[in-house]
């Protein structure tokens, strides 16, 4: 068999193997931890996000995963650390798309928008890096799916 033939077969096998799994998966199992339990959302300024679009997206995510929403308020650096450690699942509350913390955390697509200086920027949610399954659930909820 030629090298190309082997390549094609390898790819086909991977496809078959993946079709049977829950993909994309979370390396740290965030979705599993939230499902049927509490969705812990970190906020930094108010007791819950002031933006109605953000609150609604969080509610939809909780409903998708059959979970209750629990807000935790703390200073931003502590929240980023808590996110990296898996102590909170999501960070919300007018986090601009251009957040300087983008290296430490993963971010979702745009949820809402805010005024930063004199510019209107899109806002996102932050989540633990690499939790691609949970990111997919969250983005589905942001997109309006219950």
């Amino acid at each position: 068999m030629t090298g190309n033939g082997r390549g094609v077969i390898a790819v086909a096998l991977i496809g078959l193997a993946l079709a049977g799994c829950d993909v994309p998966a979370d390396p740290e199992h965030t979705t599993e931890h939230v499902r049927g339990q509490a969705l812990i959302v970190g906020v930094t300024t108010d007791d819950e996000p002031s933006d109605p679009d953000e609150r609604a997206a969080i509610q939809r995510l909780a409903k998708r995963l059959d979970a209750t929403v629990e807000y935790r308020r703390d200073e931003i650096h502590h929240q980023v650390k808590a996110l990296e450690e898996g102590e909170i699942h999501l960070l919300a509350g007018h986090l601009p798309k251009t957040t300087p913390f983008a290296k430490e955390v993963g971010t979702t697509g745009p949820v809402s928008s805010m005024l930063l200086g004199d510019k209107r920027v899109k806002t996102v949610f932050a989540l633990r890096k690499g939790e691609n399954g949970f990111l997919m659930e969250t983005e589905k909820a942001i997109g309006g799916a219950n």
Partner: peptide
């Protein structure tokens, strides 16, 4: 040990993983 974060995109009314 960085975990790459890969999001989704909306295509034909479906959320599809960019991977």
């Amino acid at each position: 040990a960085e975990h790459p974060t890969i999001g989704t995109i909306e295509m034909f009314g479906e959320r599809i993983w960019l991977g």
